[in-house]
């Protein structure tokens, strides 16, 4: 299979006062193109830390993360920002849209940062927002959208840069059942029809039920890796 991400012996230690907390302990694994992976585990098991490290938002104490032959742990700060822009899509628990921009502008913004020309940008933005069911709400600002709608804008934004994979940290944690179902349908469709790779951390059984692969983390270690 086509390996997108490979982690080798990742360790991350946080110092909380005099206590050392091992958030990740020698984690090695691979993610392949087209996977729909849920990282699960109790609170404090290291799910978010793991996502942050493979997303280049945090650095490990030891080990490396190789994405398409690039060891991102060796990249400088500026290079890493550029790498994230072109290779990784993010979906956050609290949506984190830019409140002063409309749904359309939020999606378009990522492509603007990439330097994509206006014509293509506008075309792709419309397509993406239609794909997530918000074709008629493009000119609304985040405050005029429900939580579920905001998260769908966030999905469109994550897809806008045509990333190698999308990382989602507890994407359904703030959503009601209906919105969760709608979001999962969209993500599953994108995964199945367009082969988009999704990796998400979650506690939500509804998300776990839809995952094709489940990684269980406990005390910073992968204790189970199930393919469904």
């Amino acid at each position: 299979m086509n390996t997108v991400i490979k982690t080798e012996h990742l360790s991350k230690i946080y110092n909380q006062g005099e206590i050392e907390v091992k958030a990740l302990n020698d984690v090695s694994c691979e993610f392949h193109k087209g996977e729909f992976t849920a990282i699960v585990g109790p609170s404090g098991s290291g799910k978010t830390t793991f996502l942050n490290i493979i997303g280049g938002l945090d650095s490990p104490n030891t080990g490396k993360v190789v994405i398409d032959n690039t060891d991102i742990t060796k990249l400088k700060s500026g290079e890493l920002i550029d790498f994230r822009l072109h290779n990784i899509g993010f979906i956050f628990q609290a949506y984190n849209l830019i409140p002063v921009l409309t749904a359309k502008e939020n999606v378009e913004f990522i492509m603007l940062l990439q330097g994509i020309d206006k014509e293509y940008r506008e075309k792709r933005t419309k397509e993406l927002l239609k794909e997530v069911g918000l074709g008629k709400m493009m000119d609304r600002r985040p405050t005029q959208l429900s939580g579920g709608q905001q998260q769908r804008v966030a999905v469109a934004r994550a897809l806008a840069s045509k990333p190698r994979f999308i990382l989602a940290d507890e994407p359904t944690a703030n959503l009601d059942s209906k919105s969760t179902a709608q979001l999962l349908d969209i993500m599953a469709k994108l995964n199945e029809e367009e082969g988009i790779t999704f990796i998400f951390s979650t506690h939500d059984q509804r998300v776990i039920d839809r995952a094709k692969r489940i990684l269980v983390l406990e005390d910073g270690k992968i204790v189970e890796d199930k393919k469904m």
């Binding site: 500026g78 920002i81 994230r84 984190n96």
Partner: peptide, 11 residues
């Protein structure tokens, strides 16, 4: 918000 902007690739 600023964290998000930096995360998604704003220099």
């Amino acid at each position: 918000e600023l964290g998000m902007l930096m995360a998604v690739g704003m220099k």
